[in-house]
Write a protein that binds this DNA or RNA. Structure first.
Lengths: 260, 260
DNA sequence: CGTGACATTGACTAGTATCAACCAAAGTGG
DNA sequence: CCACTTTGGTTGATACTAGTCAATGTCACG
């Protein structure tokens, strides 16, 4: 190990995935991991988790790194423990679709057989827990709760994917933007029970217009114009591209749901 | 039980799901079920399967029946044993997106918590194996191979959903049609190893233009015109709407993959 | 032979993409 | 510290794909 214990906070960026440790500082420190209580890890007890972590390698990748590339051999299953990841697919002429944005607690590469079917890029500094795929079935047998949880999450991701397919297949540009903003609000702004507040709600948009366009199946220009239109109609407001206020969250949700 | 043993072959169509038996003719006859060697059932031994079947109800629905409706209570998890199902979502003004077409061996309703998030409609006479959701976790513990298999299938369905998202987000009408035709060819026409033949290949399209449009995020007119264009360019041929010949399967695949 | 469901084709429209200019904020280097 | 460049975003003019509306064609069925 060349990198020291401070690697995660080191200011030098690492352009390729770097194994931090297989059993060192982080190998037995799941208990203070950011992702301890989300995603697959939340399914296990502290004891089981520390057993599990012996099968994991801890990896850090610098912002901008493409750490999974479509067509590559896929020996690893990843669990994200820190940072944000852009998952996307490309057509030969460069058209891009962003499948999703993933962050702490979410996993990557469960379905892969042989080669990855997608690309994954670190949007900021990303830390990953990495498992050898061939060992996965053994781990499932050892930790049934893990498998149960993964099934649960996969099933819900499938539902979310179907929702996004509806958006891509049938919603207008404005409806797509509205859907996105409302989902963002529901995820982040402590809107627990799935209810939106009636009052205005400030949001920080975590992605660029370009990422948003490729996520919603639009162009950056159309995204920009749709934002402008929603502002003109009084549903949202913003002074810069990343600080948006939902002025009428529930009306916006109605737009996003395609209310006739 | 009102319906007799011949119910499945009865010419009278049943408009609502009808329980055939919980432990009668079909309850212990998994071994000659159409879906015995596909989907989740293929994961189990004959003995385990016959144990599992005691937790199932067997249900038949007539062609055209909407047997799962978005928003309904979702007490059941379904396994399709016969026939074809159209799974779709609607926007309030009637815009429809067909999530997928499902048939023997595929399952429905795994992710649901409380209410269904989709609609399911029988495209022909459909037979289903139905499980109470609250009993599912118990079944998973009893038959770990079942859970393993469901996780596997779910993960692959997720990959397929991402592929379809790429299509909906970024492909042109002609590319969507080409993709659909090629996938159909790969699934049905004994193209085992995932290889397309270089030679012409006759296909029977199992869906209407309207279903195809709603599956591919297009209108029926655009579907029709795209077929006409592919015919004009010599990639396919057809005399009626459901009997299509792929004249140059590999070139068609290139179109479907968005080759520049 | 008439009817209805499904499909095709044409004319026109609309929504989004494309191309291009411009703008603002954030580096970068002398 | 200030010109210069770079990056990301907005706005406008125009093009084009796919949608809409409407007419016509085809086939199965009573």
């Amino acid at each position: 190990m060349i990198m020291g214990i401070d690697m995660f906070t080191d200011s030098a960026v690492i352009r390729r995935p770097v194994v931090i440790t297989a059993s060192g500082r982080h190998g037995s420190r799941c208990d203070d991991c950011e992702a301890r209580h989300s995603g697959m890890c939340d399914a296990l007890s502290d004891e089981d988790l520390s057993l599990l972590s012996r099968s994991a390698q801890h990896v850090a990748v610098a912002a901008g790194t493409l750490f999974i590339e479509e067509g590559d051999q896929s020996p690893y299953f990843y669990n994200i423990t820190h940072g944000n990841v852009r998952v996307f697919r490309l057509l030969p002429d460069g058209r891009r679709h962003i499948t999703g944005f993933m962050s702490g607690g979410q996993f990557l590469g469960l379905a892969e057989t042989g080669t990855y079917a997608f690309n994954a890029e670190a949007m900021d500094e990303v830390h990953l827990c990495r498992f050898n795929r061939v060992a996965l079935n053994g781990l499932f047998s050892e930790f049934p709760a893990l498998e149960r949880r993964l099934l649960n999450i996969s099933a819900h991701e499938l539902t979310a994917a179907h929702e996004q397919m509806l958006l891509l297949a049938r919603k207008t540009a404005a409806e797509r933007i509205a859907s996105y903003l409302v989902n963002l609000a529901l995820r982040h702004e402590g809107c627990v029970n799935g209810m939106l507040p009636a009052a205005a709600l400030a949001l920080d948009l975590p992605v660029s217009r370009s990422d948003l366009a490729d996520y919603l199946g639009l162009t950056i220009e159309t995204v920009s114009r749709s934002f402008a239109n929603l502002k003109k109609t009084g549903l949202i407001d913003f002074h810069n591209a990343h600080a948006v206020t939902l002025l009428k969250p529930r009306q916006l949700a109605a737009v996003g749901n395609g209310a006739a």
